[in-house]
Measured scan of single mutants.
Amino acid sequence: NQASVVANQLIPINTALTLVMMRAEVVTPMGIPAVDIPRLVSMQVNRAVPLGTTLMPDMVKGYA
């Protein structure tokens, strides 16, 4: 099973992602693959992402 990107903290809307905000976890359903974490750094979320939420492609501006 491939790990997905999960929020390590509450990420407010329009926040630029940093490594500290994300962790890799095997979850269902799968979200953004953990291998993409370096690519996500400095991209912004388009909604508030609660702690423990799996990041989906439509939550990150410019990802999809």
Rank of each mutant, 00 (worst) to 15 (best):
P12F: 07
N14E: 11
D36M: 03
P33L: 07
N14L: 05
R39M: 12
M56H: 09
A64F: 06
I37S: 04
Q44L: 06
N1M: 15
K61R: 10
L40A: 01
I37D: 00
P57T: 05
D58A: 09
G31T: 01
A7G: 03
I13Q: 11
Q2K: 03
M59G: 04
K61V: 12
I13G: 09
L17S: 00
M43C: 08
R39D: 04
M22W: 02
T28L: 04
V6Y: 02
T15C: 05
M43K: 12
M56C: 14
R23G: 14
M22D: 01
P50G: 10
D58R: 04
A7L: 03
R23C: 10
M22L: 14
N8V: 10
V35Y: 05
G31I: 02
T54N: 02
V5I: 11
A16D: 06
A24G: 12
P57E: 10
L10P: 09
A34Y: 08
P38Q: 08
P29H: 08
G52F: 06
V41H: 08
I13M: 12
R39Q: 04
V35T: 15
V49M: 07
I37L: 13
V41I: 10
L19T: 10
S42N: 07
T15W: 04
A7T: 12
K61M: 12
V60M: 06
D58M: 12
Y63C: 06
P50F: 15
D36R: 04
N14Q: 07
G31V: 02
T18S: 09
P38W: 04
D36E: 11
M22C: 03
N46C: 04
M59N: 08
M22K: 00
V6G: 01
V35C: 07
M30S: 13
V20M: 10
M22V: 09
S42M: 09
G62D: 13
N46A: 08
V60S: 01
T53G: 10
T18W: 03
L19N: 08
M22A: 01
Y63F: 12
Q2M: 13
V35M: 11
V45S: 04
S4A: 06
M21K: 03
V27K: 08
L51E: 13
N46V: 15
M43D: 04
I13C: 15
K61I: 12
V26I: 09
S4F: 03
M59I: 10
Q9Y: 08
V20Y: 11
N14R: 06
